[in-house]
């Protein structure tokens, strides 16, 4: 193969990939663009990416009895300020942080000791417990959603933070993953710790935990991404109380309340919700791809 032929094939590959890139980027591009533009520009599909940013007057603000000056602003300012004022977006974001972090925290507290026992302690019934873990890996979340919802409703826990967290407190995948990891930790390390008189409890948290940071980080990324983005479960257990809604559910409510021209503020809210993970992903790509694919079996 000669050189020009090589470049020709490289060029055509880039052409195909660029076409794919356009389709993949398209909704992101439009989401951002809508969040910048005025309602009129959105309706008439004009104004390019950023819009003309001509001053606009917010009618709702006028109706609220404020002066015309206070209600006149650039569309981009209008969209983002409406996103935060029309809906409790800040509250949704805070809920998202509370829920995802509590889930991850509890998952680690439950999974780590269990994984350590399965990997490094010999006891009667260990294989049975491990078998149970493997069996539970087969159960998809959607298959337990309805009965779990009924159970939570029976004890009056729907519409609480607890209902958002409880189903995820047990991560059999986390146990499985950490057990495989702990298997590779040399026994000498644990024996040395025991000689020093450490209890099994402190071995887990002061010897095993630090060695497990890389695996834990991958699992953490997986867990946080999955639960920040989760829409199904919050939709099931949170039925009215806006103060408990997570970001995707809040955005969904925004959509069903929408009257006419709110595309701009809605896409501003969507941008704010999508941005944290996308930015984190761009900063630590390799780790994110590792975390999400390594744990892809869920």
């Amino acid at each position: 193969m000669n050189k020009s032929e090589n470049w020709y094939s490289e060029f055509s590959k880039h052409m195909i990939l660029l076409f794919g890139t356009i389709i993949v980027i398209l909704p992101f591009y439009l989401m951002l663009s809508f969040s910048f533009k005025s309602p009129a520009e959105i309706q008439s599909i004009s104004g390019g990416f950023f819009g003309n940013q001509a001053l606009m007057t917010d009618n709702r603000c006028l109706k609220a009895g404020k002066s015309k000056e206070a209600c006149t602003m650039r569309p981009v300012i209008y969209n983002y300020s409406a996103a935060f004022s029309e809906a409790p977006l800040l509250r949704y974001l805070l809920n998202g942080v509370i829920v995802t972090l509590s889930i991850f925290f509890i998952q680690v507290i439950v999974a780590l000791p269990c994984a350590y026992a399965l990997a490094k302690l010999k006891f009667w019934g260990r294989d049975v417990v491990f078998g149970l873990v493997i069996f539970c890996l087969l159960i998809p979340v959607h298959a337990i959603a309805l009965p779990l919802y009924l159970m939570l409703a029976k004890v009056g826990l729907t519409n609480t933070y607890a209902s958002l967290v409880i189903p995820w407190t047990i991560s059999v995948f986390g146990i499985f993953l950490m057990r495989q990891f702990f298997k590779t930790v040399p026994d000498d390390l644990i024996d040395a710790a025991r000689m020093d008189g450490m209890s099994e409890f402190s071995i887990v948290w002061t010897v095993m935990l630090p060695t497990a940071i890389p695996a834990l980080l991958a699992f953490g990324i997986f867990s946080v991404v999955a639960h920040w983005n989760d829409y199904f479960w919050p939709r099931v257990v949170i039925t009215g109380d806006r103060d408990l809604m997570t970001p995707p559910l809040g955005l969904r409510m925004f959509k069903s309340d929408m009257d006419g021209n709110e595309y701009g503020p809605m896409m501003a809210a969507a941008t704010v919700i999508v941005a944290p993970l996308v930015v984190a992903f761009l900063l630590a790509q390799r780790r994110f791809i590792e975390g999400i694919t390594l744990t892809g079996m869920k």
Partner: peptide, 10 residues
């Protein structure tokens, strides 16, 4: 990575 619900609306 991106929140599917938000992207679905986009």
């Amino acid at each position: 990575m991106a929140t599917l619900l938000a992207m679905a609306i986009a």
